[in-house]
Design a protein around this nucleic acid. Structure first.
Length: 1011
RNA sequence: GGGCGGGUGGUGGAAUGGUAUACACGGGGGACUUAAAAUCCCCUGGCCUCACGGUCUUGCGGGUUCGAUCCCCGCCCCGCCUACCA
């Protein structure tokens, strides 16, 4: 018996396939349907292929092979995305040229691709760093320039102040430079930009015409972040501030404006007395590290500019602030703050005691218990005010019904509260004033209430044990003292009941020493927040409800951000949602101070890199003519050979130091000029490489129109999920632009996109060199062979799931491959196979084997077509288990079974060919075939043959399985019912009650419903 | 906070309204062997039972249905992406 030896047969067939150009795709072949299978080309790093690459390319290869065997003209190309920082750094470190480093790495990758047995058409190989390739990248860039979509602007770059170098986003980890740990700063420099925002809507629209998984399509839509709203002008002194808002309906509730610290008007509107503070804040905001900005629940900071504007609806005076929560890069860099209806504005208003004005009544879906204390403060005056406040935040306000509200005892108090306990849920708040505070605590603990927020307004005397109330207080006031006794409260237990506890106090309260109260809060309420309460201050100072300032303090920790009919909005009262927005915009539009506007989160693409190893941007800067494109016939602008690749201390590219190269003449006026020294990002070459594969050798055009027309859209594009919002979006943008320029025939580059899951290390963590848990595909091929590796990769999990690597399961895959080989050898040795074997099934045994064979064809075909590779493999395992089972195999080895064995074995080899191409090719040859199995066609199944003679019918009683029996699939309902009733176990259950209903599902089950 | 996935044996996973746990890994037992490895065969969700069989089980709680891992409603947990985008 021939021994299975992957180390011999795999390289042998790889060589044969290469020599015969077996996988060549034929441009223009109209005799077959085309299929363009694309996998993302790799960045050829020094580390070689990793497990993720192996998964991606194996999946792509199986798809390509399956399609090819079905007769498609398959294009499955490969190339290298080789520009970029890793190679540049590698070259600096090892003191070699990046060109040489790339060539070395590419050679390693190529060898590894071949060893995996990938069916790639290598005549179409591309490399983004070859001048023949990047000539066209530059040419395409000039198209953007000609159309005004490539422009220059001052943009911040990541800057390491220690190494004095610009950094890519990848080099910034947790806000620090990954090499030296220095906090990264921003530095403004002039950079090239691509106007991807001009295609924002098209990029969203185009998604409707392609087949992308929702997680990818949704993420792109999310990333583009389209929002519709309005720009509204506010006069600030002589200046105009335009804000962007999606909620113009809430305009009347705008109680202040906030500008980004970098907003150009800040300097001009700041008043002299605020200038110092404002300048300090602006400076601080500039130096803010990435770490601070990434902190999500940071408290709001900001500074008042001293300037005021006017609310165009209410006429109220609105202060103008600056704060870093407003981003200069989004919208207009300025907002109108509506704290009553926006969470961020709400938090800002809370932090700086800014006024709040509700312009919508929130639907009352939550409950607030208002527990006022004894008289003595003017709680009677502010009770209705507080009630109105809470209602505007969507609370139903409830209060205990107190028979003797003057001086109740604790027992009386709790008895009055008793009926309210079940009205309080996790959304509820309790607000308790004065003696109500310890009462609320007792109430919560007694009923084990879970509430959202407990607000204690000046709880009780701080110099007494919490919860006890001093008689002296009343007697000194000359009051009639009721015998009040309060049980001391264990305040720490409240922390688990109330989601939040806030203790409010007034600095001017005549009865409560402020500092002492603060101390007690800190000591006794671990979860509590202590804060002053301006409204209470107002009352403490003798004010009443009528003199309450328009500045209404923030009281509860949520605000209503939904839609409801407007209030406090003058002529717009009663309007709601879109109607209200329209009415308000129209009103302001008439005065010329507002217009509708659409904004995107998507920013224009910063297309400059201050590095050597990238495509030079083909622009010449001339003193007279400005930025001038390099004429087409002078392309490519090649990279000069240089000694040093290190970035410069000025933030410029190393190319800037090469005067020979930089100094040139202006193509327009022949005057002295300088070349652009920035290079393109490594997303440039990958934005159009799929087009180059269609016509890789063309030196007249990036690809011929004929080739692009023939290959059309990529039929299936497989790659990593991490490229969803960068590479995938960028290349769609380029393609849509090319379409508009008449350069490509299709509107979208990729008809379908799929993302493969991540391969984790066996320990469930990410594979990482530093942990030392990486799997090297070359090692696996060395020990098991590429066919085993491929089979295992397909079998380990659904292709798009993240799943851990397992050496044990890999060994299992290996056992399967060996079993197939052994079975094939036994059959080949037992029979003198010839190609003239009789075709059809014979006796019952042959029918049984043929049926299994054709079922396997159907199953494997369907599963591969649906990319369910793991179940395709298990179907093959079941089929092989059947063939090699002792009973079947013994008969297959008998001379009379030669024909059926031949049919089975040929089919098995064909079905395995996309998965284990080398072994299949070897066995195909051993079976006596001349050509390659990979172009030998894909087996077809006979639908008649796979129909079973008998089916197993399940019998249920009240939905529980009680028996099963085999019967002809054509059995009638009556026959099924009769057979089901005949089962003794079923009869047993039917005797227990009355049969009320019988459900019969032909070929599946019978269910008796018994009462 | 937002978006998108997911939760099934000891493990990877199968089943998209009809016998839950296919296929594989791991584990147990056996055959072969002087022995081991390899290979082959049998068993392998929990509980009760000598057995026949029964019973429970797909994150939790409800609902729809003769029947729910699958459909609907409400929760909990995990992963990925994203994040002060007005």
């Amino acid at each position: 018996m021939k021994k299975y030896d992957p180390k011999t047969i795999e390289p042998k067939w790889q060589q044969t396939w290469a020599d015969t150009k077996l996988y060549a795709a034929i441009t223009g072949d109209t005799t077959r349907a085309k299929y363009y299978m694309l996998t993302e080309f790799p960045y050829p790093s020094g580390a070689g292929l990793h497990a993720g690459h192996t998964r991606e390319y194996t999946l792509g290869d199986v798809m390509a092979r399956h399609k090819r065997m079905q007769g498609y003209n398959v294009l499955y190309p490969m190339g290298y995305d080789a520009f970029g920082l890793p190679t540049e750094n590698f070259a600096i470190k090892h003191k070699i040229r990046p060109q040489d480093a790339t060539a070395q790495n590419v050679a390693v990758f190529r060898q590894q691709f071949d060893s995996l047995g990938l069916s790639i058409d290598w005549d179409r190989e591309v490399n983004t760093t070859h001048p023949d390739y990047y000539r066209w990248t530059q040419w395409l860039f000039l198209k953007f320039f000609e159309e005004g979509l490539a422009y220059q602007a001052e943009m911040p770059i990541n800057w390491c102040p220690f190494e004095k170098t610009g950094l890519s986003n990848e080099e910034v980890v947790d806000g620090k430079h990954e090499r030296c740990g220095t906090p990264v700063e921003k530095k403004l420099i002039k950079q090239w930009m691509l106007k991807i925002t001009a295609y924002a809507d098209r990029l969203i629209e185009g998604l409707k015409t392609v087949d992308y998984p929702s997680r990818i399509a949704d993420q792109q839509v999310n990333w583009i972040g389209r929002s519709e709203g309005a720009e509204i002008d506010f006069a600030v002194g002589d200046h105009k501030v335009t804000v962007y808002t999606t909620r113009p309906d809430t305009l009347a509730g705008a109680t202040f404006l906030v500008l980004a610290p970098e907003h150009p008007v800040v300097d001009q509107i700041t008043t002299d007395d605020q200038r110092q503070e404002v300048e300090a804040y602006v400076k601080q905001a500039q130096g803010e590290s990435e770490i601070d900005r990434q902190n999500t629940d940071r408290t709001k900071t900001g500074v008042f500019t001293g300037a005021y504007s006017t609310n165009p609806i209410t006429g109220a005076k609105v202060p103008v602030w600056i704060a870093d929560y407003v981003l200069a890069s989004y919208g207009t860099g300025a907002i109108m703050a509506v704290p009553a209806h926006d969470e961020r504005d709400f938090a800002f208003a809370a932090a700086f005691d800014l006024p709040t004005s509700a312009v919508m009544a929130a639907p009352r879906t939550k409950t607030a218990l208002l527990l006022h204390g004894l008289e003595g403060h003017n709680q009677k005056a502010w009770y209705p005010w507080l009630k109105a406040q809470l209602e505007s935040f969507g609370y139903n306000v409830i209060a205990p019904n107190m028979p003797n509200a003057e001086f109740p005892t604790l027992e009386e108090w709790l008895a009055a509260l008793e009926p309210l306990a079940n009205q309080l849920g996790p959304d509820s708040v309790i607000i308790a004033h004065s003696l109500g505070a310890p009462t609320a605590a007792q109430f919560i603990l007694k009923h084990q209430l879970k509430i959202k927020h407990l607000l204690l307004v000046a709880p009780t005397f701080p110099d007494m044990p919490w919860g006890a109330y001093p008689k002296e207080y009343f007697s000194t006031n000359g009051q009639n003292v009721h015998d009040i006794t309060m049980v001391p409260v264990d305040w720490s237990k409240l922390a688990s009941a109330a989601g939040r506890i806030t203790v409010f106090a007034s600095q001017n309260d005549p009865y409560i020493p402020y500092d002492l109260l603060k101390q007690h809060v800190a000591a006794n309420l671990p979860k509590a927040q202590f804060t002053t309460f301006p409204a209470m201050q107002h009352f403490s100072e003798g004010g009443n409800i009528n003199t309450l300032p328009a500045a209404i303090p923030v009281l509860v920790d949520d605000c209503f951000t939904g839609y409801a009919p407007l209030i406090n909005s003058g002529q717009f009262n009663g309007l709601e949602g879109a109607e209200a927005k329209q009415a308000i915009i129209k009103h302001l539009e008439a005065k010329g101070s507002a217009k509708t506007a659409v904004k995107y989160k998507l920013r224009d693409w910063i297309f400059s890199r201050q590095h050597y190893w990238g495509e030079p941007i083909p622009i010449v800067h001339c003193e007279h003519c400005g930025a001038v494109p390099v004429p087409e016939d002078q392309l490519p602008i090649t990279l000069p050979d240089v000694e040093h690749y290190e970035p410069t201390a000025t933030g410029e590219s190393p190319l800037a130091a090469i005067t020979d190269w930089v100094n040139t003449t202006c193509p327009k006026c022949d005057g002295p000029a300088k070349r652009e020294t920035d290079t393109m990002p490594n997303w440039a070459g990958s934005s159009w490489y799929y087009l180059r594969y269609m016509d890789a050798g063309n030196n007249q055009a990036f690809a011929s129109p004929e080739a692009m027309k023939y290959w059309g859209e990529v039929d299936l594009y497989l790659g990593g999920m991490e490229h969803t919002t960068l590479h995938l979006l960028y290349s769609r943008f380029w393609h849509q632009f090319f379409y508009d320029q008449g350069l490509v025939p299709t509107t979208e580059p990729y008809a379908a996109r799929r993302g493969q899951g991540i391969v984790l290390a066996a320990d469930g963590r990410k594979m990482s060199k530093s942990i030392g848990n990486v799997v090297n595909p070359t090692d696996i091929i060395e020990s098991y062979g590429a066919d085993t590796l491929r089979l295992y990769i397909l079998f380990m999990a659904p292709y798009d799931e993240t799943t851990p690597w397992s050496e044990e399961r890999l060994a299992g895959a290996s056992r399967f491959v060996w079993r197939v080989w052994a079975l094939a050898q036994e059959l080949i040795e037992a029979h003198a196979f010839t190609r003239a074997m009789k075709p059809g099934p014979g006796d019952a045994f042959e029918t049984e084997v043929d049926r299994a064979t054709h079922k396997a064809i159907k199953k494997v075909h369907d599963e591969l077509g649906g990319m369910r590779f793991n179940t395709a493999v298990s179907a093959l395992m079941e089929y092989v288990n059947f063939l090699s089972g002792a009973k079947t195999k013994t008969r297959l080895l008998e001379p009379a079974s030669a024909a059926v064995a031949w049919r089975a074995l040929n089919t098995l080899v064909q079905l395995l060919a996309p998965i284990t191409p080398h072994m299949s090719e070897e066995l195909w040859q051993q079976l006596g075939w001349e050509g390659s199995v990979h172009v030998a066609g894909w087996p077809k199944y006979d639908p008649e043959l796979i129909k079973d003679d008998v089916v197993v019918i399940v019998v249920q009683v009240n939905g529980k399985v009680r028996a099963n029996f085999a019967i002809s699939p054509d059995a009638t309902e009556a026959e099924l019912t009769e057979a089901a009733l005949a089962d003794p176990n079923v009869a047993k259950y039917l005797n227990d009650g009355k049969l009320v209903k019988t459900i019969v599902v032909p070929r599946k089950l019978v269910n008796f419903v018994v009462k």
